[in-house]
Each structure stands twice: as C-alpha cells, then as structure tokens.
C-alpha cells in the first residue's frame, strides 16, 4: 500500500474510531513527517506472539514494544502484555512462544490492551522484523473492536536488511558480507547481537531494536539521513 493511500485510509478510520464511544483514543496526529531527520525520529519497535499465522482464525497472545529515538534505544520505555486467547490455541504455536492457554486465561482481553498500545506508540514510526504480519493482526484486532487500523508509518528490518545486503557499502565492508538467512535470530546473531534463548514478544522486540540500531548506523554512513530516505528502502 502506498504511503498516501495509507494515510488517507487511516485519516478516515481515525475519525470513526473516535466516534466509537470514546473507548479507544486515537493518539495519532500525523505529526511525524517523512522529511524528519532519522536521528530525531521516534520509533516503536514491536513484536507480537500469535496463535498461528492464519489472519482469519488466529489472534494475538502477547505484545512487546520498546521505544527508540533515532538509533538510541530507551531501555525502560517498554511495554509488554499478555493477552487472553480469543479462541482455541494451536499446539504448534504454543510450542513456539511457550505461552499456554492455562497461563493466559486470566490475562486481559485484547480490547483492553489496544488503547494502551495506541497510547504507547502515538505518532511513532513502527519497526519490526517482517512487521507486516504483526501489523495485520494488530489491524485485525483494532478493526474488530473499533473499526480502526494503524495509520502509523512503518519500516521492516527484514526489508532494510535485504537492501543493505545488496547495496550497503559501509555495511558490507564492516561485516564482510552479510547474513543469507532471514529469520530474526539468525540475522541478529550474524551481526553480533546477544540473543537470549528465552524469547518473548518484548525480548524479540529488543533484539529487533538492536538490529535496527545497527542498520540505522550503516544507512547513515551511506547517506540515508531522513525518514523519507529510510522509507524508500524499508517501508513495510
């Protein structure tokens, strides 16, 4: 989806969400313009754990997010929430994220997590590894409850990595090539990020943030200084 149509769509959606008994506050103001310098740009790196990958049947079981300004990660500005399953959980997915229906049954419903998430991200540019999946599920939940979808700009660390792998002069020089794998952990490890074995949405978001932090450094070295330039490379 192009930037303009996305903004257009969500400008409309935003209005409707507000009308929806005021339950979800749309915190997006559109203040972040693509011309902003990356160094000053607020980012929220986020990750979700899911019950499966089928957007129609599956749902979010946890959300983790951490804030950044430019390449700086704000250690304590983080969000981590477990979500009460909105349906039956598949055995395979439980094996991946280790969250069982039993331990989730007393958690909040997604609809009470959503306003906090929106409040957390505000105008920030969203960042994630294969973020389209996370956005899709988030949008689905928002749409369900508030007929609203995320208007925020978003970049994908996977896409950025593909670009750097092909075109990043400083990047390739520094790392003597790059990772041929694409999954978060393999990529992170290839670039020297400590990856904890225990992985949950917040830890994964933190790993992604560190990956993004490295990428931004080398993008900057190759002349990528504004959000616009970043979006050209890594738009989700």
């Amino acid at each position: 989806m192009s930037f303009l149509s996305r903004v257009f769509r969500h400008a409309k959606a935003g209005k409707r969400a507000k009308a929806d008994e005021g339950e979800a506050t749309n915190t997006w103001t559109g203040a972040i313009q693509p011309g902003i310098s990356i160094k000053e740009c607020p980012f929220v790196v986020f990750d979700t754990e899911l019950s499966g990958l089928n957007a129609r049947k599956d749902f979010i079981v946890s959300v983790g997010a951490i804030k950044m300004t430019g390449g700086t990660i704000h250690i304590n500005r983080e969000m981590y929430r477990l979500v009460r399953p909105a349906g039956e959980m598949k055995k395979e997915s439980v094996e991946i994220h280790g969250l069982t229906p039993g331990e989730l049954k007393d958690e909040e419903e997604i609809k009470s997590v959503l306003p906090d998430f929106l409040e957390f991200i505000k105008d920030s540019v969203l960042v994630g590894h294969f973020i389209n999946i996370d956005i899709k599920f988030m949008d689905k939940a928002l749409k369900n409850k508030y007929n609203y979808t995320l208007p925020n700009l978003a970049v994908d660390t996977h896409t950025i990595h593909e670009w750097l792998y092909e075109n990043g002069v400083q990047f390739k020089k520094h790392y003597h090539g790059g990772s041929t794998k694409t999954d978060l952990f393999s990529v992170a490890q290839r670039y020297g990020i400590t990856v904890d074995t225990a992985h949950d949405a917040l830890n994964d978001a933190f790993v992604t943030a560190q990956l993004f932090q490295r990428f931004l450094y080398f993008l900057y070295a190759d002349g990528i200084h504004t959000l616009n330039e970043l979006l050209d490379i890594g738009r989700a």
Partner: peptide, 14 residues
Amino acid sequence: IAGNLSMEFFPKNA
C-alpha cells in the same frame, strides 16, 4: 538510573 537508561550502538572505528 535504569528508568532513564538508553542504549547506543557504535561499530568498530566509529
């Protein structure tokens, strides 16, 4: 301190 901590990355030679 931890509540106000942030983290930066610098590659070799930066």
